[in-house]
Design a protein around this nucleic acid. Structure first.
Length: 519
RNA sequence: GGCCCGUUCGUCUAGGGGUUAGGACGCGUCCCUUUCACGGAUGAAACACGAGUUCGAUUCUCGUACGGGCUACCA
């Protein structure tokens, strides 16, 4: 009998989700969809001190932007296992912690944080380290060393306590990881982790295991930073007697920063010139702003395509993947073991690729709204008409990686040049060319079908009849029309600008260069 | 420090006991083009090191080095 695949993405709302988190969500989503399973969003907000307002909304919006849609969860209509916010499940965890106490797998500990900190610093001073474990717990203040009466007294009083897992002595704990194979850790290396905090909230370890069990999670797919605590989680499943329904684990390689070493951190992005966040984020406390892929005009499909390939790769050479194709081809077995350095350049290339795939009409609509909001063009401006934009876009879209670059690259299509590239003019201009441009002006004035084919034909004929090779005057013509020596297809530009505009620009340029129009 | 994980071109990676070690981004050159871009062609560029197993290791094993992660009443 096969049980339904159920996976979860379980971020903690301590700030914006960064791209590593998005990738984890993506892999969970792909895996679930591939197997016809469920993908759940659970908010792990058991640490109330680290709660950041807006972070949860950010996570939800980011997933939506990426097209990573949970079946159940906070912000996505909940579901049969609601609530999906751990702070709202508070009562559940105490019960399970008590169950562990009753079965002897956990115990109460009364040591204060201060006392433990002192122990830690003392041990560090002698280049050692302190762990609350099978050895040290015998000397500390807990229900193992205290009498039953004393323990009860402390529990019923106002004294703060935590519940710790009683890690067994001298045993190897094995974690079967889909990506890494068998990973084992000896219990002497583990410590008696706190499961239940003195503020009445569970720690991640308890909450995560209890919720995964309750929500019938079959596969835990998360970042490699969790690998060291995986044995603890295995121990927890065993202590609860849930080993037979324990999820399978897959620990994903980390995303590394492009330069130097270390994992990609929230601080790297804008420092190195690329966003680390899917969406822009303004820190509510400091007002510090971090850029986002969405606002930088990356397409979500480019972003997710790039992310999917950072740590996973199909057996072939295919690199352009739609979400549907990713779902089709994805498998955890083909996720790499080693960390992947993020490459901002390749991300731009993906964007360029997807931009070319956009229908011109879609790009035209986007441009239109930018022209309206940023350039204050009115709706009846001829440059706002489809007629104009649908001709301009094919000239521009092959030359840019982002939509806004079309306006930078093609500025001269919108506005008359105010100055002319002097380098080109002084290099190419000869007084003898004046006659040619006068003739060209005249020929264009008499041309009725002012399209790219005709304008080019006329241009060439005029050049030849003036004893010139077209190439001698072509770049000058370009500078006269656009002000610059390079740019979009010249006669395509002429057609786009239209007869009147071309004649006007030509006249203005000739006046600047000093050609007598009527000579 | 301890524990755990990893290591193929600069980067993402394919491959896998015998290969001219393949692709993509980026970079160089050439072609196309009046220019730029696109496109096409092409070039430079990698199996961390040392042992072992083997007729043969980049591939398997072990060590070393290097990199990373974890080491909280954070997740």
């Amino acid at each position: 009998m096969s049980t339904k695949i159920r996976v979860r993405f379980a971020p903690s709302p301590t700030g914006p989700l960064h791209m590593g988190g998005v990738r984890t969500a993506l892999y969970n989503y792909l895996f679930a969809k591939k197997h016809g399973g469920d993908f759940i969003l659970r908010i792990e907000d058991t640490d109330q001190n680290r709660y950041v307002p807006g972070a949860e909304e950010y996570i939800i919006e980011a997933l939506k932007w990426c097209g990573i849609m949970p079946n159940e969860g906070v912000g996505f209509g909940d579901g049969p296992h609601a609530p999906y916010r751990q702070s709202e499940r508070k009562d559940i965890y105490k019960k399970y912690a008590d169950q562990l106490i009753a079965s002897g797998h956990a115990y109460y500990a009364f040591d204060s944080e201060e006392e433990l900190t002192i122990l830690r610093t003392e041990m560090e001073a002698v280049k050692s380290s302190f762990a609350y474990n099978a050895i040290t717990r015998k000397q500390l203040i807990n229900s193992l060393t205290l009498s039953k009466a004393e323990t009860d007294k402390r529990l019923s009083g106002a004294e703060h306590y935590v519940i710790r897992l009683k890690v067994p002595e001298n045993e190897d704990i094995h974690v079967k990881d889909i990506i890494r194979g068998d990973v084992s850790v000896h219990t002497s290396q583990m410590d008696d982790k706190v499961l239940f905090k003195s503020d009445g909230m569970p720690t991640y370890h308890l909450a995560n295991v209890v919720d995964d069990y309750l929500m019938k999670i079959t596969h835990v797919i998360r970042g490699e930073e969790w690998l060291p605590s995986a044995p603890l989680h295995v121990l927890l499943y065993r202590s609860f007697g849930w080993e037979n329904v324990m999820p399978q684990f897959a620990h994903l390689p980390l995303l590394l920063k492009p330069e130097g070493n270390g994992k990609l951190s929230k601080r790297d992005g804008d420092r190195l010139g690329f966003p680390v966040f899917p969406l822009r984020w303004v820190d509510p406390a400091t007002r510090e702003e971090s850029s986002g892929y969405r606002e930088k005009e990356y397409y979500p499909e480019a972003f997710t395509n790039m992310l999917a390939l950072l740590g996973w790769h199909p057996s072939g050479d295919k690199e352009i993947y739609s979400m549907e194709e990713l779902i089709e081809d994805f498998s955890l077995e083909r996720v790499n073991k080693s960390g992947a350095k993020f490459d901002p350049e390749k991300t731009k290339w993906f964007n360029q690729h997807y931009l070319r795939l956009k229908p011109d009409s879609v790009l035209a609509d986007h441009l239109k709204s930018i022209l309206r909001t940023e350039f204050n063009f009115s709706s009846d401006d001829h440059r706002m008409q489809d007629d104009f934009l649908l001709k301009a876009i094919p000239l521009l879209k092959e030359r840019v990686q982002f939509e806004h670059e079309m306006l930078e690259v093609g500025r001269y299509l919108l506005f008359k040049p105010t100055e002319y590239d002097q380098q080109v003019i002084s290099k190419k201009w000869k007084d003898s060319h004046a006659a040619f441009f006068r003739a060209l002006l005249n020929a264009y004035e008499n041309l009725n079908d002012f399209n790219s084919v005709e304008t080019e034909k006329v241009f060439q004929e005029t050049a030849v009849s003036n004893g010139l090779k077209p190439g001698e005057v072509l770049q000058l013509f370009r500078v006269f029309l656009s002000g610059q020596g390079g740019g979009v297809n010249l006669f395509g530009m002429a057609e786009l600008l239209g007869k009147q505009e071309v004649l006007q620009r030509l006249k203005s340029a000739m006046a600047v260069v000093g050609v007598e129009l009527n000579a």
